[in-house]
Design a protein around this nucleic acid. Structure first.
Lengths: 218, 218
DNA sequence: GAATGAAAACTTACACCGCTAGTTTAGGAA
DNA sequence: TTCCTAAACTAGCGGTGTAAGTTTTCATTC
């Protein structure tokens, strides 16, 4: 088959198909030949649209990151904006957990990831946090969100009661974690995020703006 | 070469060499042939000692996890124990960052990982936290530590001033993050951990043991 | 001491991988 | 009509995990 009348591939089609493949079968199953087969094409044809496999992964990762909402930093106080952002970030990542290990390496040159970092950092600095502190806060929240999306905590435990009964006395119920996966993972995230933000609010009051924070109406 | 007088491979030798290879060149460079070559042997010989490549990775991961100190849960109050554990956990992971994406999938059937989970959960329950809460706290801290070790936040930004200058006004200094990598990453971890623990301590006072917590000497 | 069986290396081979090179043909522009 | 580019193709390189079968050594048993 030489060049068809209607191109069979576009960057968008490739990214969508790649996302679906990664979601369905995981990063290891994502190969250029496999992806091409899903698109009714041979492996090397993809290289007419992307230079490398990593470039496809970058596009997938940035599409995922693009779904994160950072608008709160423009409209709300920094604490509420952080909370909204963290939840949106988590939702975006848990919708495509298999790409998280790739995406979590950092923004690299991906536009959506850089725009997100820009919005968060800018919002924190505007709120009065010293630049170094703003960097730390953004990093700490990214740590927490990425870690929470990297793999389900609950599903990390094998469903094998005998495994735990023998040697790990406190984990007797661990094999049942998978049943309540979503509630365990979301509960842990909610608890951790609340604790983190609580601590940050205290730090803000202590170091950034004691007077402003003390006032009843921000 | 048939069977030598002295076996050239042992499980320990293989794990040590695999760890060194992963540390030096990353997970993608870790192949059975490559590892075998480092050991002066052909690829398939490894299968006399491990059933699969993943079994080798499990052994590496569990060796890394084995370096985490959870002794605080037996000797100190829960808050200090959590702090010590988190730092020890982080040190263990950042000493071998390339294995983190694999290890962070959960404890699976790895003994050291299960022992760690057991110690943390047991310690929190003993301190009075309700079981569900203890699970959440352990998970939240694992999220944070794993996320922080998954990849350097600082090195996630490309060292290319022009990239940021054009479109990301707040990231003008981002290309310099790599220079201060360790201080950025550790600072973010310290800040986030303190905030998290601060929030947990407040929650403890509110819900678990208001009286005990209010006393001056624990 | 001979025979036996397991252990630990080997070679060969399969199906897959990312990617390069060169080929073919359709479409659009001069 | 001619030519260039785009977008598919086939062929192939060097790599991957691992299964299968082979060879030799060592430890054990008769």
């Amino acid at each position: 088959m030489p060049r068809p009348r209607q191109p069979r591939l576009t960057r968008q089609l490739i990214v969508e198909s790649a996302t679906a493949l990664i979601d369905a079968e995981g990063l290891p199953a994502f190969s250029t030949r496999r992806l091409a087969a899903e698109l009714g094409v041979r492996g090397p044809s993809l290289y007419n649209h992307f230079a490398t496999k990593d470039e496809i992964l970058d596009a997938v990762a940035d599409t995922v990151t693009g779904a994160v909402d950072t608008s709160g930093f423009a409209s709300r106080d920094w604490l509420a904006a952080l909370r909204d952002w963290a939840w949106s970030y988590r939702r975006a990542l848990t919708a495509h957990p298999n790409i998280v290990p790739y995406l979590a390496q950092g923004p690299g040159r991906r536009p959506a990831a850089l725009a997100m970092a820009d919005a968060v950092y800018g919002g924190l600095v505007r709120a009065g946090w010293p630049p170094a502190r703003a960097t730390h806060i953004g990093a700490a929240l990214r740590y927490f969100v990425a870690g929470s999306a990297l793999g389900s905590f609950a599903r990390g435990f094998v469903e094998d009661p005998e495994l735990y009964a023998a040697h790990y006395p406190h984990l007797r119920q661990a094999h049942r974690l998978a049943e309540h996966q979503q509630s365990v993972d979301e509960g842990a995230f909610a608890l951790g995020l609340d604790a983190l933000l609580h601590g940050l609010a205290a730090e803000y009051t202590r170091t950034v703006d004691p007077v402003e924070s003390a006032r009843p109406t921000g």
